[in-house]
């Protein structure tokens, strides 16, 4: 066991080992171990309360684990850092409910997300350069929002808000993207487009997607991890995982 750890850890992008956390006696995560390789697109499924969102909270520094190790790029200990630091290390997060800055325009949302110095004085004296402009244009076309750049984010449709948030994550230039239920509440056409978008994004970085929609996961066609009661139940291709009797009993069967 130790040997496998020593081999996987330095090569991994994200490495969780024996992570446990409990809230008021409820064990949200129970000795969870989980590895994401560089450049990997990974889907996570599991019933409600399996600990999917808690896992993201731990990776992004919102929650501290009671025990266990969390490493980024092999040797950066994430349990010692807070949200802002972790975001600047290159981990982006999309929330379950689309969260964009509603009283800003689509353009300003992306400008704020852009991977530039984020201190008080650098932002106070920031000037939009031609490079930054080009980068925002590029992201706008990736997330198909070029025509709505000057609209307030509040006026976007639900699906467009989801895309804008994905666009903001791209602007952050993360190496690892954590995406929580990106197609919840989307139409079938939007879901299909989102699958294409995520596959496109995963070409240049690692992406972890939490999703309930099995059709969407099948469309992604990637390695699947099934969580239940705070630990990993099964891991493998979608067909392998969905035929596992434990997964059927805990999740799919219900």
């Amino acid at each position: 066991m130790n040997q496998t750890i020593n081999q996987t850890k330095p090569k991994s992008l994200l490495y969780l080992d024996g992570v446990s956390v409990s809230f008021d006696g409820f064990k949200a995560l129970n000795s969870l171990s989980f590895v994401v390789e560089p450049g990997e697109l990974r889907a996570i499924i599991g019933p409600n309360g399996a600990g999917k969102t808690t896992m993201m909270d731990i990776i992004t520094g919102k929650t501290r684990p009671d025990e266990g190790q969390v490493f980024f790029k092999g040797d950066i200990d994430l349990t010692q850092r807070d949200e802002a630091e972790i975001a600047n290390l290159g981990i982006g997060r999309k929330f379950q409910k689309p969260t964009v800055f509603e009283s800003h325009t689509v353009w300003d949302n992306l400008e704020l997300a852009l991977n530039r110095r984020r201190g008080v004085f650098p932002t106070l004296f920031y000037r939009l350069t031609a490079d930054d402009k080009a980068r925002i244009e590029e992201i706008l076309s990736t997330v198909r929002l070029s025509a709505r750049r000057d609209d307030l984010a509040a006026n976007l449709s639900h699906g467009q808000k989801q895309w804008l948030e994905i666009g903001m994550l791209l602007a952050q230039e993360p190496e690892l993207l954590l995406v929580d239920e990106p197609v919840a509440g989307m139409t079938d056409a939007e879901t299909a487009e989102t699958a294409i978008l995520l596959k496109e994004i995963a070409k240049t970085r690692s992406v972890v997607v939490v999703e309930h929609d099995m059709g969407f996961i099948r469309e992604l066609g990637v390695k699947v991890t099934c969580l239940a009661e705070g630990s990993v139940l099964a891991e493998g291709s979608i067909d392998f995982v969905s035929s596992d009797p434990k997964v059927i009993e805990n999740y799919l069967g219900r």
Binding site: E83, V100, S103, L112, V120, T123, Y126, Q172
Partner: peptide, 21 residues
Amino acid sequence: SKYGKVLVAVRDAESRTRFLG
């Protein structure tokens, strides 16, 4: 300024701002 936009961002969605770094 961009700082002012960050201020409004904090007002509207504080944790989003934090997760942006």
